[in-house]
């Protein structure tokens, strides 16, 4: 049913649960898995340095988090690809999923308060609304497999 699965990953507990769900589904469907991290760049940057430094920090963070992916995937790592993108998280995830023609997107939902949603927006809601394919949302309190 699912041949190309994409997991949105930011290293949080919630994203780890989404990743675990992704690895589980990868096994069940003998699918390929893409783990995608998005680093936000500042809107209307004042200096190139501001943008450059965020990229550098994101790369360091990404390299560190890849280990968690390798740990979970184990010897199935050859079926897993990892990607670092820059920009607005929801927008980049939706675009990337469509460009690469994934047939399932898995995202974690952190359970923002109403106020946080107003100011920060909910990535999972955005992805559910705009993705071209089915989206599996792993809620904050969920444990995959239970």
């Amino acid at each position: 049913m699912f041949q190309r699965i994409m997991v949105a990953y930011d290293g949080s507990d919630c994203a780890n649960r989404a990743l675990a769900a992704g690895v589980d589904l990868m096994d069940r469907y003998d699918a390929d898995l893409a783990v995608v991290m998005v680093a936000g760049l500042p809107d209307y940057a004042g200096t190139i340095g501001e943008v450059d430094e965020i990229q550098n920090e994101a790369r360091a963070f990404f390299d560190q988090k890849i280990r968690k992916v390798e740990e979970l995937a184990g010897d199935r790592m050859e079926r897993v690809s990892t990607h670092l993108l820059f920009g607005h998280t929801g927008d980049k995830l939706v675009r990337f999923a469509k460009e690469r023609d994934f047939d399932l997107v898995i995202v974690g939902a952190r359970g923002f308060s109403r106020l946080q949603r107003i100011f920060l927006g909910s990535v999972s809601q955005f992805v559910v609304k705009y993705a071209h394919c089915p989206v599996l949302v792993i809620k904050d309190s969920c444990e995959p497999g239970k």
Partner: peptide, 13 residues
């Protein structure tokens, strides 16, 4: 012209 604004958009796209 804001090089930084342009640069951020370039990196994003």
């Amino acid at each position: 012209t804001s090089v930084a604004v342009v640069y951020a958009v370039m990196v994003e796209t």
